[in-house]
Amino acid sequence: MSFWQKLSGSTQSPPRVSLSEIVWSWLGSFLGIAAVAYINYKIFAGTDLVMLVGSFGASALLIYGANKSPFAQPRNLLGGHLLSAIIGVGTYQILPQHPWLAAPLAVATSIAAMHVTRTLHPPGGATALIAVMGDAKIHALGFFYVVMPVGVGAAIMLLIALVVNNIPKNRSYPQYWF
């Protein structure tokens, strides 16, 4: 195939899912994000603790909206977030003065690490990036960022996915644990 042929694409986009699938995706995402957002804004209000990071929005899409995807399985969700968080924080601490370099290093390295460990979870890239560009509160967490919000938050969202995704007859989760 020539370069231009490749550019024109070779297939169509997958079909739209059923209405019930959309409803359950909405419900799961709502409950999952509600849990971590409530802890973040209500329980942790006025403390230095964080429970909500932007990459959870992307995780919600996968574990509640595309729960059959390999990206959405527990191994990937937890492994991807934890690894990327470690790499993100480490990169920032090595290069705090050069965020323009720390950012791509953190993202690229976490993608490579997720590939190697078969824990590819796209939101992991965001988790690594947030560790570098995050606000002062995130930076102040240091490696605790890996435990919370990232580890605990992902675990809470996983628990909700395990419940919600197994209620409808034609849904089941996970496809595999590890």
Partner: peptide, 11 residues
């Protein structure tokens, strides 16, 4: 197949 399949028809 119900649920979103994370794959293109060509794959």
């Amino acid at each position: 197949i119900s649920g979103y399949l994370d794959i293109t028809p060509a794959d």
